[in-house]
Amino acid sequence: MQVVIFRLNKEQFAVETSKVQSINDAMKITRVPKAPAHIKGIINLRGNVISILDINLLMDVAKQDNNENSEESIIILEMEDELVGIVVDQVDEVLDLDESIIEKISDDNRKAYVQGIINFKDKVVTLIDIDKLFSN
């Protein structure tokens, strides 16, 4: 399994690369009047209009204090033949990993979109099921 590891605030998350269309530098997001709170706005990427979702709000992760050295990126994801984007604080790396290192969590105390926890020697990464996150 191959995953893209990204950072929201100081936490690290991963999403399967099979869902990732592209990773782009931050760009101007056009706000949409009266859009739900979880929609940050839209961008025009190579002629495609793409909705940008507020993943911090969807996952209940506090936003990082914006400073001049923030390296925001937009990850474009393919969801049921539709492209959507999420703004992340930083994309750390793309990794191949063995599915056996993914720890499943007991169902009663986890959020529905958490697929598991990836334990590395020096860090813990939450693997998210992007389909389940967006379906809520």
Rank of each mutant, 00 (worst) to 15 (best):
L8M: 10
L8Y: 00
L8Q: 00
K10M: 07
A14R: 05
A14D: 01
T17D: 06
I23P: 02
I23Q: 01
I23M: 07
N24V: 11
M27T: 13
K28R: 10
I29R: 04
K34H: 12
A35L: 07
A37T: 09
I39Q: 05
I39K: 05
I39R: 07
G41A: 05
I43T: 04
L45V: 07
N48Y: 09
N48H: 14
I50W: 03
I50F: 03
D54A: 05
L57I: 05
L58A: 07
L58Y: 07
A62S: 11
Q64E: 13
D65V: 12
N67P: 00
E68L: 13
E68N: 13
S70N: 14
I75E: 00
L77C: 08
D81A: 11
D81M: 07
D81G: 10
E82L: 09
L83D: 04
L83K: 13
V84T: 11
I86M: 09
V88Y: 02
V94G: 06
D98F: 07
D98A: 09
D98E: 12
E99G: 08
S100N: 12
E103W: 11
K104C: 03
K104A: 10
K104S: 14
D108K: 15
D108L: 13
R110K: 15
A112T: 12
A112C: 06
A112E: 15
A112P: 09
G116H: 09
I117W: 06
